[in-house]
Write a protein that binds this DNA or RNA. Structure first.
Lengths: 141, 141
DNA sequence: TCAATAATTCGTTATTTGGCGAATAATAAA
DNA sequence: TTTATTATTCGCCAAATAACGAATTATTGA
């Protein structure tokens, strides 16, 4: 029962559904998934750990990068069937199709470049935006 | 996406899984489900409304009684497939088998009698049982 | 019509969950 | 070895959720 609930709880969050859908096309590294769902690295990492605990995804470490993929054929049957159901069900949903397009763009960028972009955004990169907002614009103080 | 999430969220609670499993064998009224999961009527009613909103179950009103059953063939394909997956997956789980046995007992009692028993229990009615338990039996003080 | 009853809705409380940033771990590069 | 970088874990806060009892609705029976 515990294992079943791990699966159903893992599937009960929209972000995690999107992550699974993204992985349908093949293995991705964390920074690519972060780029797709546009959430903090710690948040995405937590979502991935929940999916992994439910055995819906598997991980592979390569240097500093972690690569995630959907559970393989070796997974429990309940997990495999759940994934089958999910993937066929979500394929046509607008949100998922949108993600799929965006993912194609993301894959064009080298993951290394992607990571450094994200790091810059989290650090000083946002300052320029703040300055503009604070000195001018509709939300000026 | 909204409809899909309604289904996955509905399946993310253990009580609701047990309710679905109970309904696999056929239609049941609310008081029978209350008896099975041993939760407050308002709680069970809420769970049923969540399952119903996800279209996993359907309802039929007969007088003061509401009868619930699993979604029929007319349900959305995603719902039907989810139910198929769930029912086959949970059938062997200890907790569900246990519920199935208890449900057989519950069905032996007339629902009307069941309801009045429950009403008495929620009010002062538990006293008689308490007295017996307190004065004698395996749990006597 | 009025009381009883099956179920639901409402309001409140406690727990769980999702989100973030800071700190940490692990690995690569200088 | 030291620094940079990728990802995770931790600690905190806000939002969502499950539980209950009280009040309400809908229906039957007196």
């Amino acid at each position: 029962m515990f294992e079943l609930m791990a699966v159903t709880k893992a599937l009960s969050d929209e972000t995690r559904i999107r992550l699974l859908a993204a992985l349908e096309e093949g293995e991705l590294c964390v920074c690519q998934l972060i780029e797709l769902v546009a959430l903090a690295p710690s948040t995405v990492s937590k979502h991935l750990s929940i999916l992994r605990a439910a055995r819906l995804i598997e991980a592979r470490k390569q240097g500093r990068w972690m690569h995630y993929r959907l559970a393989s054929a070796g997974a429990p049957q309940a997990v495999e069937q759940a994934l089958d159901w999910l993937i066929t069900t979500i394929r046509t949903l607008p949100r998922i199709r949108q993600d799929r397009q965006r993912l194609a763009q993301i894959k064009e960028t080298d993951p290394g470049v992607l990571c450094s972009q994200q790091t810059r955004q989290r650090q000083g990169g946002a300052c320029k935006l703040n300055e503009v907002v604070l000195s001018d614009g509709p939300n000026a103080v």
